[in-house]
Design a binder for these strands. Structure first.
Ligand SMILES: [Mn+2]
Ligand SMILES: [Mn+2]
Length: 507
DNA sequence: TCATTCTTCG
DNA sequence: TTCACACTTTCGC
DNA sequence: GAAAGTGTGTCTCGAAGAATGAGT
């Protein structure tokens, strides 16, 4: 690493200030597309930044790219910048960087060493949020994409599109983020509720995030044992799972009649499969508590179960992998793919639909999915494109599309395609063994509710290429039980004639 | 002192 | 930083 | 059996330098 004693060494890098160039590109993007969203401080920052000497600007960007806010001068040696204290002078002048008091420096063995503190981290984080639309990505995306480490689909996008449309939305997102961080470390429900922003009328995905956070606050309240307050929060909360929590809390509060009444309403008009599944589990219990005769028990599940005993000596780190090996046969190999296979097939077949240049869906060049992926209108906005993809399943057309996209899009980030799981051979086996009716059924289920149906698929897939046959296998070790989303997929498979079984592994 | 983990860079 | 999954514990019948 | 709670890996690469910390 280039450290202080080396900063005078020759610059070998072809673009020694690449990170500064990238940061400037981002600032230009922000000024052009989001100028109306930025406040005075942010505008002033951008204006002043461009007036800085190059070395000072570069040092600031280096600091922004690093972790924490405190830096020893001796650790800020960059060959392209040169002397850090020279470069820091202009930054200190602006108040963006501060020299830490010497008392702090006493800790360090070298008293001549200076400590700098970056003062504008919150401002930089806000700019990062406005650019990316999330806090997950950072400026290193630029260089990683340049180097081809991350590849992203090139989607033509309207220069008017951006992550946020109003300043209020930016501030709300930030407030939600802070509140959710607070939830991690604090149990003060009153305080958390005060931090929670009010409902967002004009932004669906922000309102979704708000509701989910409200739900999590209620869960926290429930854990603390304040059932009455939790009930009140759940009742106010529009989050998908909140109705069921209301039933559960009424039950725990021994208000059985009310619980039964709401449960009956949910049974009549379930919002989704999850509600149906959970309310069916609560129903007999509530009836019993109400003194009613429990209705007939649930019909038995339709999937088969078999046992497998692994030798005690080979007790590997990964149970699924070991099971795959044990079940594998020369003519019938087993692969540990979990959600990776079906989702990848879906993502490859529907690539054009997923990355269709719909207005507002793509705004920067580092997206692995459209911004509205989880919006209820996602499918509707691309109905024609998806219909075209699904139509290919009526003939053999889908095979070429999947294989072609596997070749042409290799490595390009997509929310659906697990490049580390699939291979050409796996794809060939899958296309040979999975009938198109099964693919159509699974893809339809994923598209119907991406958030809840893109996961929960069985651990293993076994192919019999010679017989053009396959089966899915969910592995369960001792003490591991089927989860709700796994049960829903198993039931779905049974209903559509997709061969699936559960393998109970022991030693 | 060595091994492990964290951080940085591109 | 988020989420899906496994693994563990507790409860009530 | 059902429910709730906890833990873990992984979103994101690999190479290489620094820091950490347990053990001597
Ligand atoms: Mn699994
Ligand atoms: Mn499993």
């Amino acid at each position: 690493m280039r450290r202080a004693e080396h900063y005078a060494s020759p610059m070998l890098h072809p673009r020694p200030f690449y990170y500064l160039e990238n940061f400037c590109m981002a600032l230009a993007w922000l000024r052009q597309r989001c100028g109306d969203l930025l406040n005075e401080t942010e505008h002033a920052f951008i204006a002043r930044f461009h007036e800085l000497p190059r070395e000072s600007a570069a040092l600031l960007v280096r600091m922004i790219g690093r972790k924490g806010d405190l830096f020893r001068a001796s650790k800020l040696g960059y060959s392209e910048i040169g002397c850090p204290s020279d470069a820091a002078a202009a930054l200190i002048e602006l108040g963006w960087v501060d020299r830490e008091p010497p008392a702090q420096a006493d800790w360090w063995p070298d008293p001549s060493d200076v400590i700098y503190r970056l003062m504008i981290r919150p401002l930089c984080d806000r700019l990062r949020l406005v650019f990316f639309g999330n806090f997950r990505q950072d400026w290193s995306q630029f260089v990683l994409a340049d180097l081809g480490i991350f590849k992203y689909e090139k989607v033509p996008c309207d220069p008017a599109t951006r992550a946020f449309h109003t300043r209020e939305h930016i501030d709300t997102f930030h407030a939600l983020f802070l509140c959710s961080q607070q939830l991690e470390e604090s149990d003060d429900i009153e305080g958390l509720l005060r931090m929670l922003p009010p409902p967002v009328a004009d932004n669906e995905w922000l309102e979704d995030r708000r509701r989910k956070l409200q739900f999590r606050i209620a869960q926290c309240c429930e854990r603390q044992g304040d059932l009455v307050l939790a009930l009140q929060i759940y009742r106010e909360c529009g989050y998908a799972g909140a109705r069921l929590r209301v039933v559960r809390l009424l039950e725990r509060l021994e208000r059985i009649a009310e619980a039964l009444q709401l449960a009956a309403r949910i049974r009549e008009q379930p919002a989704d499969e999850v509600e149906t599944q959970q309310v069916c589990r609560m129903w007999p219990r509530l009836q019993r508590k109400a003194g009613l005769i429990p209705q007939r028990s649930r019909p038995p599940h339709g999937w088969s179960t078999f046992k497998l005993v692994l030798p005690l000596d080979q007790r590997p780190a990964c149970l699924e992998q070991a099971t795959a090996q044990a079940l594998s046969q020369a003519e019938a190999p087993v692969h540990y793919v979990e959600n990776g296979l079906i989702n990848s097939l879906f993502g490859l077949l529907c690539w054009e639909a997923i990355f269709a240049p719909i207005a507002g869906a793509f705004f920067h060049e580092f997206q692995a999915a459209p911004a509205d992926l989880h919006a209820p209108a996602f499918h509707g906005r691309r109905a024609a494109q998806f219909a075209q993809c699904f139509a290919q399943l009526e003939s053999d057309g889908y095979r070429d599309t999947i294989r072609r996209n596997f070749e042409q899009k290799t490595g390009i980030q997509s929310r659906f395609v697990f490049w580390n799981v699939i291979s050409e051979a796996l794809l060939r086996s899958a296309l040979d063994c999975l009938p198109r009716e099964h693919l159509a059924a699974c893809f339809g289920r994923i598209l119907a509710n991406i958030r809840s149906n893109a996961c929960g698929l069985p651990d293993l897939v076994q192919f019999w290429p010679a017989q053009r046959r396959y089966r899915l296998i969910e592995v369960k070790g001792p003490g591991d039980r089927l989860q709700d989303n796994q049960i829903r997929w198993l039931s779905f498979c049974v209903a559509h004639g997709i061969p699936v079984s559960v393998c109970q592994v022991s030693w």
